[in-house]
């Protein structure tokens, strides 16, 4: 075990722990843009610099392992000065359109500029002017807002394993793009949106049908309703409507989703949902009340039981519904109707 001090607090951690990990252990928050615990740390953005007593320069907390007796300050004057310079430089190349930017309220750049009191950049000069890549139907890539943290590239290559995007060009015009800039739609991108979910700014954004501000929303942790992986996700909800989905760190998905889980949620609030029971009258399905629907079903079940027996009734349960729904359906069939004629589509 290694003993060290962070902002005066004594901390004990295992060897190989980074400063960032040690700090989070004692609840000290160090800002990051490019860090993601699932990725190999790369220290690209440098916003996580801290001051180490006796050190000559400011190391990045995400890549620097702790050592015995280390004494760290995470918000010293010099640290704050450096972070302000980094933010100033980032803003030199970032449109200040927070008023209309959809990321507003959930943007790390916005949050840190607020925290370190940066209103605008002190730099003047050339500005990025990239065409927005709108070709993918699920999300867009606006490189004018990119801060080159690299997270999207590494998530796509290290976790998703698709390697659809990378850094293009060097120096000032560096940006995130598909090979040969052919656009997302022509690339190997599988629209999983895992890059979108980690982008700290408004560069990679879902094409949402709804207009909403993040402060108007709440999130609800749940399980994906599509395949059997059982990815954990947060539904983003505004006014009784699902307006987005974020991946959560579930045991099976470890923060990843696929295109269905991330983007195919529109069925929930879809206008063609069934909203009342229907019964067939004179050959047509017409709206009815729950009471009447139950009565029609109950009469038919009772009549069939009396005339032919319960085994002339069968039910297909649903592999898409709750465990509890399935339990009650088989109980209904077995305990109340009186047959074991219950199956579901495991075979199909």
């Amino acid at each position: 075990m290694i003993n060290l001090k962070i902002n005066g607090f004594e901390v004990q951690v295992e060897e190989g722990t980074t400063i960032l990990q040690a700090a989070s252990k004692v609840g000290v928050k160090i800002p990051t843009f490019c860090h993601d615990p699932r990725l190999v740390p790369h220290g690209t953005c440098r916003i996580c610099v801290v001051e180490v007593e006796g050190g000559r320069n400011l190391p990045t907390a995400c890549t620097t392992p702790v050592y015995e007796g280390m004494n760290i300050q995470t918000e010293s004057k010099e640290v704050v000065q450096t972070r302000r310079e980094i933010l100033d430089l980032v803003l030199a190349n970032h449109p200040l359109d927070c008023l209309t930017c959809e990321k507003s309220g959930r943007c790390t750049l916005q949050d840190l500029c607020y925290q370190y009191d940066i209103k605008e950049t002190t730099y003047v000069g050339e500005r990025k002017d990239f065409e927005v890549d709108e070709s993918n139907p699920f999300y867009y890539n606006d490189q004018n807002k990119c801060i080159l943290c690299g997270k999207c590239v590494y998530v796509c290559s290290q976790l998703q394993g698709t390697e659809a995007i990378g850094f293009a060009e060097r120096g000032f015009p560096t940006h995130i793009a598909t090979p040969f800039n052919q656009g997302l739609e022509q690339s190997t991108c599988v629209s999983c949106g895992n890059c979108v979910s980690v982008c700290p700014v408004g560069a990679l954004m879902p094409k949402s049908k709804e207009k909403f501000r993040y402060w108007e929303t709440k999130t609800v942790r749940t399980t994906c309703s599509y395949c059997g992986v059982g990815c954990q996700m947060d539904l983003v909800v505004k006014d009784d409507k699902v307006v987005g989905v974020d991946p959560a760190m579930g045991a099976s998905n470890e923060g990843l989703l696929c295109v269905k889980g991330k983007f195919a949620y529109n069925f929930v609030n879809h206008p063609s949902r069934l909203t009342t029971p229907l019964v067939r009258k004179d050959g047509k399905l017409v709206e009815t009340s729950w009471d009447e629907a139950y009565e029609v079903i109950a009469n038919k079940i009772n009549e069939t039981k009396e005339t032919v027996g319960a085994d002339a009734i069968a039910a297909f349960s649903s592999a898409r519904a709750l465990t509890e729904d399935n339990y009650l359906m088989q109980k209904l069939m077995r305990a109340v109707v009186g047959t074991n004629n219950i199956d579901h589509c495991a075979r199909l």
Partner: peptide, 14 residues
């Protein structure tokens, strides 16, 4: 499917 396992576990089987 998301809950084939649950449906089988619950005896939604003949």
């Amino acid at each position: 499917q998301n809950n084939v396992q649950g449906a089988c576990d619950m005896g939604a089987l003949p």
